[in-house]
Amino acid sequence: MHYLVGTDSIHTTAAICDYLGDRVTPGDTVTTVAVAPPDDPTARRDADEALNVAPVRLAAAGDVETERRSGSPATVLLETAGEFDVDEIVIGVHSGDPDATRELGSSAQQVLTDASRPVVVVPIPDL
């Protein structure tokens, strides 16, 4: 199985890793993508920190790849899903921002609407 994880924060990555923790096997690949604007150093730092969590928390997976990309989060995730021909996309319900509402975020809505493969939306716990 090949999973695509879309993240923008440590909190989102941790929640997704909790979901995937009992599901991944040594035969699985997890590609973790953080989308951050290239001109926002804080967002880039948050994205890099989010990417550091996945290989540690998903050590049971056969291969965990991470990369930071720029652009519209939903567009980047959908393009990446096609590029890697993933089996499942796993995203957070909203950004990992502690001030975000509990509602489904616009990027999650777009991924759900436009994806041609299964999408799992994971809740982000309150901090």
Rank of each mutant, 00 (worst) to 15 (best):
A15L: 07
L20T: 06
V33T: 13
G62M: 12
P125E: 10
V56D: 05
A34R: 01
V64D: 10
E103G: 07
R102C: 03
V53T: 04
P118T: 00
A59I: 15
A81L: 07
V122D: 07
I10K: 11
A108F: 06
D18E: 14
A14L: 15
E83L: 04
E103L: 07
T80G: 12
R117D: 02
V64I: 15
A59R: 13
V86A: 04
V24W: 15
L127M: 09
I10W: 08
E67G: 11
G21A: 09
V111H: 08
T80V: 10
P55E: 02
R23F: 15
V35S: 01
V86M: 01
E103K: 11
A59H: 14
A15E: 04
P73W: 07
A34S: 10
H11E: 11
Q109P: 05
P37G: 12
A15P: 02
T101H: 11
P37W: 02
L127R: 15
E88L: 09
A43K: 11
T113L: 14
V24N: 09
V35W: 00
G96I: 08
V24H: 12
R44E: 13
I89Y: 09
L51Y: 05
E49I: 06
V120I: 04
E79D: 13
V53D: 00
V33K: 11
T25L: 12
T32A: 13
T42V: 15
G62D: 11
D63Q: 15
R69K: 08
V122C: 06
R102P: 03
V121S: 01
P55G: 00
G71L: 01
P55R: 00
V111L: 08
G62C: 10
V93A: 03
S107L: 01
P118F: 13
V64A: 14
R68A: 10
A54G: 06
N52I: 14
D97I: 09
L51R: 00
S106C: 04
R68Y: 03
S106A: 06
E83C: 07
D46P: 03
A14W: 09
P118Q: 08
V56N: 02
D18T: 12
V24Y: 14
G27F: 08
R45N: 13
P123A: 01
S70E: 11
Y19C: 02
D28S: 03
T113S: 15
E103Q: 10
A74P: 04
G105N: 00
V93K: 03
D97C: 07
S70T: 13
D18G: 12
A34T: 00
D99S: 13
G96A: 10
S106L: 00
P26A: 12
E103I: 08
F84S: 12
D22N: 10
E79P: 02
D97Y: 09
E67H: 01
I124A: 04
G96V: 11
E88C: 07
A14P: 03
P73L: 05
A59S: 15
V86I: 08
P38F: 04
A61K: 13
I16L: 10
L51T: 09
V86S: 02
P41W: 04
T75D: 14
G62A: 10
T101E: 09
G82T: 10
T29I: 08
T42R: 14
V86F: 11
E88H: 05
E83M: 08
V120K: 07
